[in-house]
């Protein structure tokens, strides 16, 4: 792992003999928590039935931040996300090479159930269980055998975090299937938050929602900043710009660029990123490949 910026800075100022304690505070650096990578993939490669989908992906997932994954359709965003909590294990034709680390531990060596308890996931299409709203939220809690006494608290807190509490607080015992699609999706977020995972994966969570539901959903993702680490796949660049702090751009199974969202949008290093972020079409890589 690379040394954090703050540490590097501290070391440098040490060498310079400056009064160390005061300087970071004066520069406002202390307010920022030390950025650490909760999760990290190292040259991850993935094949479906012998066809390579991920071709050496290395991305860090920074603690407490929203990382957005963008890229054209079919480039492997969903696949990358699903490999992070080993949902890819469910596909029998899938083979993985490379490393995935969670807090420095090798995910491949972990018990998959234990891994999924720490890395939750919200799917592209709302998939509530055919149960009451309350039972949906408590599903993971019950599955993980957490303490009984605080069930009501957990339900309220998670529904609040998913910005849906006000809409459903009077009908917690109704079937979740009676809700609208947007509400269902927020229930799915609530049920993921209810087990307080270290990392929350979201696969185009707003893909099937209308603008108003999308706004609500974005609101709930923003509310998770700081407290949760979020990795969200999205098709909508404007959404990525609004909700994310870091941005990963994938093209055909390669990471083209990774960095702070703001910086990538304003001044991308790669020409392909510039193409994609400005128009959604990538010409430069294809031209390069055609040339070579």
């Amino acid at each position: 792992m690379t040394e954090s910026f703050e540490n590097q800075w501290l070391r440098r100022s040490d060498a310079g003999g400056v009064a160390v304690q005061d300087v970071p505070a004066a520069l406002g650096l202390r307010k920022e928590p030390t950025p650490t990578n909760v999760m990290e993939t190292q040259s991850l490669q993935l094949w479906y039935s012998g066809r390579q989908v991920l071709k050496g992906v290395s991305v860090p997932v920074v603690q407490g931040k929203v990382t957005a994954i963008v890229g054209p359709s079919g480039c492997g965003k969903t696949t990358l996300l699903r490999s992070l909590n080993r949902l890819t294990d469910l596909s029998r034709n899938c083979r993985i090479e490379g490393k995935i680390l969670l807090d420095g531990e090798d995910c491949m060596a972990m018990d998959p159930v234990a891994l999924r308890r720490r890395v939750g996931m919200v799917f592209q299409r709302p998939n509530p269980f055919p149960m009451s709203i309350r039972e949906n939220v408590l599903y993971g809690v019950r599955a993980q055998k957490r303490k009984k006494a605080r069930f009501d608290e957990i339900v309220e807190a998670s529904l609040r975090k998913a910005v849906i509490w006000d809409e459903v607080k009077d009908r917690l015992d109704e079937s979740a299937l009676n809700l609208s699609g947007g509400q269902q999706q927020r229930i799915c977020i609530a049920r993921t938050l209810a087990v307080s995972p270290e990392v929350v994966l979201m696969d185009e969570p707003a893909a099937s929602l209308d603008p108003r539901s999308t706004a609500k959903l974005e609101e709930s993702v923003m509310a998770m900043r700081g407290e949760y680490t979020v990795v969200a796949v999205t098709h909508e660049l404007s959404q990525a710009r609004r909700i994310s702090e870091n941005l990963v751009f994938i093209y055909e199974g390669h990471i083209v660029e990774f960095g702070e969202t703001k910086q990538l949008f304003e001044d991308p290093r790669e020409e392909a990123t510039r193409d994609y972020l400005s128009g959604g079409l990538v010409t430069s890589i294809e031209e390069e490949e055609a040339a070579s």
Binding site: V113, A114, G120, F129, Y139, A143, Q144, R191, V195
Partner: peptide, 9 residues
């Protein structure tokens, strides 16, 4: 997948 992703055995 929903069940598995919530850490259910």
């Amino acid at each position: 997948e929903a069940s598995v992703a919530l850490g259910a055995g």
